[in-house]
């Protein structure tokens, strides 16, 4: 397992050297700072949005780009000639991206609460559950992109192309009350929409909607299985 911990160490250095990591942290923070003037004290809607943006960027942009690039560059193939399997690299990457999403979200919670007087999360366990299920669902979409994109650039392009409509439908571009009803209704069931709503419910102290959690779990499972099925190592 010495190889495994060294792999985690090197991969986390690479993750921090990736400009994508800076973007994924800076963009939601920027949005939080810019729009917090319009949100009153005790708000939880804007912080939930910013957290969704962060996880969306990690899951739809960083995960697929990193993994597809590793395949394109023959790194997964090269690893399968060593005693360490390429699956280990995949596992380490997903774990690190998850840790990164958690850290980015923690920063956003802290900044919201400490600097912008947002209400602290009302139900922490519910929020952690919503976060884990939602992140799994979003990462599963990222994995599907990684599995099917021809190369790193294509994965990057698909991720970005997918991010904007999903962010719009998920109520991250404008509050969902301001969206046409039909789009808002559809948006509730997209991965980013589910994540935002479930996190917001827990943060604000509203009742948990089990249906949202269940749909996220189904997304994670089904899309995750499909991408595992189509994943090419070379």
């Amino acid at each position: 397992m010495a190889g495994f911990s060294k792999l985690a160490k090197v991969e986390s250095k690479l993750l921090l050297r990736d400009p994508g990591a800076i973007f994924s942290m800076a963009i939601p923070l920027f949005i939080l700072v810019i729009f917090s003037g319009g949100a009153g004290p005790g708000d939880t809607a804007l912080p939930s949005m910013s957290m969704t943006i962060a996880v969306g960027l990690v899951g739809l942009y960083m995960v697929p780009t990193t993994l597809a690039t590793y395949r394109e560059r023959g790194i997964l193939r090269r690893l399968s000639t060593t005693p360490v399997s390429p699956g280990a690299l995949l596992g380490v990457q997903l774990m690190l991206q998850l840790v990164f999403a958690v850290l980015a979200s923690a920063v956003l919670v802290a900044v919201s609460v400490v600097i912008f007087q947002a209400a602290p999360p009302a139900r922490v366990v519910a929020m952690a559950t919503a976060f884990l299920l939602g992140t799994s669902a979003i990462f599963a979409v990222g994995l599907l992109i990684a599995a099917t994109a021809a190369n790193g650039r294509a994965a990057n392009g698909i991720g970005v192309l997918l991010y904007f409509p999903l962010a719009f439908l998920g109520g991250l571009m404008q509050p969902k009350e301001a969206m046409p009803e039909l789009l808002a209704a559809i948006g509730e069931f997209t991965p980013l929409g589910l994540f935002r709503q479930a996190v917001h419910d827990a943060w604000s102290g509203a009742a948990t909607q089990p249906l949202l959690l269940a749909i996220m779990a189904v997304y994670a499972l089904v899309i995750g299985l499909v991408s595992a099925r189509c994943f090419r190592w070379a």
Binding site: L14, Y70, R73, G74, I75, R78, T81
Partner: peptide
């Protein structure tokens, strides 16, 4: 065994 593959690279930033 040690292997050098024809079309294999490393991450840019390693």
């Amino acid at each position: 065994v040690g292997v050098q593959l024809q079309e294999s690279l490393l991450p840019e930033n390693i």
